[in-house]
């Protein structure tokens, strides 16, 4: 294998996602992960206060370490981290998206292999005026998902991918 020198590296996609995505992810974290964890901690503390006050000295720190701090850490770090990772770019021949927060995932799919372009707006996303564009290919390991786009960006992106996919020759298989 002849490797050109210096070896090329994959650069980051050009466009970040909409800043409102941070609020969307924060709300999501509160509703799904951190909220329930904090509620559980609060309920346990109240129960302990009412019925087993003697357990507080060890239960308090335990809850703090196992539930409260992880919940706060998640809701603080995840949206920021995600916002920094998530990015997208539509090239002439391929679409490129970066996603994830702990596991960073960067995926490139050529437009000639695109089968469908779906735009999804979940109930929470609608509140924040956001949308997710999913570009499907013949393999699930090749589906590109771009979350946290503004409505207008999503519409424009879906239209451009649709147009480009028709122009670039290929059999999609």
């Amino acid at each position: 294998m002849s490797m050109p020198t210096p070896a090329p590296r994959l650069r980051d996609p050009l466009h970040g996602v909409d800043p409102r995505a941070r609020r969307w992810w924060t709300t999501q974290a509160l509703l799904v992960v951190s909220g329930p964890m904090l509620l559980t901690a609060a309920a346990l503390l109240v129960l302990s206060l009412l019925f087993f006050p003697s357990a507080l000295p060890w239960l308090g720190p335990l809850l703090l370490v196992t539930l409260v701090l992880p919940a706060l850490g998640y809701v603080w770090a995840m949206p920021r981290w995600r916002y920094r990772t998530h990015a997208w770019e539509l090239g002439v021949r391929a679409v490129y998206a970066a996603s994830g927060w702990f596991w960073r995932k960067r995926r490139i799919a050529p437009l000639s292999r695109v089968q469908t372009v779906d735009t999804v707006r979940g109930p929470l996303q609608q509140v924040f005026g956001l949308a997710t564009v999913t570009v499907t290919t013949a393999s699930t390991a090749g589906d590109v998902r771009i979350a946290g786009l503004s409505d207008a960006d999503a519409r424009e992106l879906a239209r451009r991918i649709g147009d480009a996919a028709q122009l670039v020759p290929g059999d999609a298989a």
Binding site: L10, W103, R107, P110, S139, A141, G142, V144
Partner: peptide, 13 residues
């Protein structure tokens, strides 16, 4: 091959 994905974690990086 119809798409490429690169995944890593902070440890892997």
């Amino acid at each position: 091959v119809l798409a490429w994905t690169f995944t890593d974690t902070p440890m892997a990086r």
